[in-house]
């Protein structure tokens, strides 16, 4: 999967589109909304530029790292463990 020359064209397009969407979304949030726009926010941090973007990214990285390096060593057993 990490060898980009074998990745199909469609996958490259999807990845490129995702990068573009992230960039555009982040820009909109940063430039247009944050300073003046009323977000009806309840919590203060909702007004921080890029809060949701950073939160989403960090949350998922944490989730995967904890699942892989903490939970899996604790709970993983052979497939026939219960047989």
């Amino acid at each position: 999967m990490s060898d980009s020359s074998h990745r199909p064209k469609a996958a490259k397009v999807v990845i490129a589109l995702l990068f573009a969407a992230c960039a555009i979304g982040f820009l909109i949030d940063f430039l247009f909304l944050s300073p003046s726009f009323d977000k009806h926010a309840v919590f203060e941090w909702e007004n921080w530029p890029g809060f949701y973007a950073v939160f989403g990214f960090v949350a998922c990285v944490l989730l995967v790292l904890v699942a892989k390096y903490v939970l899996r060593p604790l709970v993983m057993r052979d497939e026939d463990y219960y047989e």
């Binding site: 995702l18 982040f26 949030d29 909304l33 009806h40 973007a53 939160f55 989403g56 949350a59 998922c60």
Partner: peptide, 17 residues
């Protein structure tokens, strides 16, 4: 604001994946 917030949360989760 809500649509933006939710979209940002999700596309950056996808970016992390």
């Amino acid at each position: 604001a809500h649509v933006m917030a939710q979209s940002l949360l999700l596309i950056f989760s996808a970016l992390a994946f």
